[in-house]
Write a protein that binds this DNA or RNA. Structure first.
Lengths: 187, 187
DNA sequence: GTCTATACAGTGATAGAC
DNA sequence: GTCTATCACTGTATAGAC
């Protein structure tokens, strides 16, 4: 009889995937226990506040990942390099379109209002960080804002349609088009 | 004591808005009864198959609307005119971003697998109809396909981010950018 | 075509043993 | 930090009166 002992840092990624696949309401406690192999007791040990606390921590966790791996590099590093880095990270993170953006999905859901601040901040910071990097390369603030909005929305749209078609290549093509548009606006 | 009597054609739009706001799992029968002022009994009279039948008919209803108002015009009318017509209809349909695309939202949800065929077909036909119209204007099939994919994904992304930011103007700007891109590729 | 009453499974949450 | 047992409640669905 094996007995696995977890810490919270192990649990969050597990629970995240359940919400990503099933959405807020679809991810019932029994579904979560089934897929994580953690009992309700254990789940409530880690998250006394229940599902709301789970989602709160999940969103914070995702946000932190993006801050560290995408936003801060855009804000602090050499801009052209940081932008190339962003494309590689995004493709890897969304697993070429197989993985959706939980924050984007929650934005469409009735879930939005409950977590409005985190959801909003995530997109605001992404767009602003990208725009600031573009300005650094010498293009105008106006163009930079436009291109940034187009890029971030384009990624989200690529995820939606890629999943609707059940075709990863759609996301890949979307990423390729957006990358090219962005580098065109740089030169 | 007023007593309202409905037919199915009255009921579908009402129920649609509940699913649009709350998602498949969020739209419980009690929420639906509360917002439509129809009892469970009446709901099951119209949809004996329960929620699944509701969603089936809702998606078909939405699809038919798009076929009639967007896809067929693109396929049959003068292409430039049909494309301009599409932009106007899309802006009105999504109420400048206040209304989400239910089919897109379901694509992100665990709901996708249950209604995979309708969801897929909707996007396939939209992209193909738009591409065909573009080819009619004389541009190459390759470019037309690219621009069509970019446009349809862009609209979806605009809806996601607009709702995440709780800012209708984001959707309006997205539509404006996409319109311009599209007309640029025409000339 | 409307409704209420009812059945019964699944839900989120808690208590307490190990 | 793990688990099972149990709670009140909400979920979908059905039956039958009007």
């Amino acid at each position: 009889m094996t007995r696995t002992v977890f810490e919270k840092s192990d649990v969050i990624p597990l629970v995240t995937e359940v919400f990503r696949e099933l959405g807020y309401n679809g991810a019932s406690l029994s579904k979560i226990t089934a897929r994580t192999h953690l009992s309700k007791g254990s789940l409530y040990y880690f998250f006394p506040g229940g599902k709301d606390q789970m989602v709160d921590e999940i969103l914070t966790h995702i946000d932190q990942w993006f801050v560290k791996n995408i936003f801060e590099p855009l804000e602090e590093n050499e801009p052209r390099e940081a932008i190339e880095h962003m494309w590689r990270e995004i493709d890897a993170y969304f697993q070429s379109g197989q993985r959706i953006c939980l924050i984007g999905a929650f934005a469409l859901d009735g879930t939005r209002d409950r977590f409005a601040t985190v959801i909003r901040q995530y997109f605001v910071r992404w767009i602003e960080a990208l725009s600031a990097a573009l300005v650094q390369t010498g293009i105008s603030k106006e163009t930079a804002d436009q291109v940034s909005e187009e890029t971030v929305a384009g990624i989200q749209g690529g995820l939606v349609v890629s999943r609707a078609l059940n075709d990863d290549s759609f996301f890949e093509r979307t990423l390729a088009r957006l990358t090219q548009r962005l580098s065109t606006s740089l030169s």
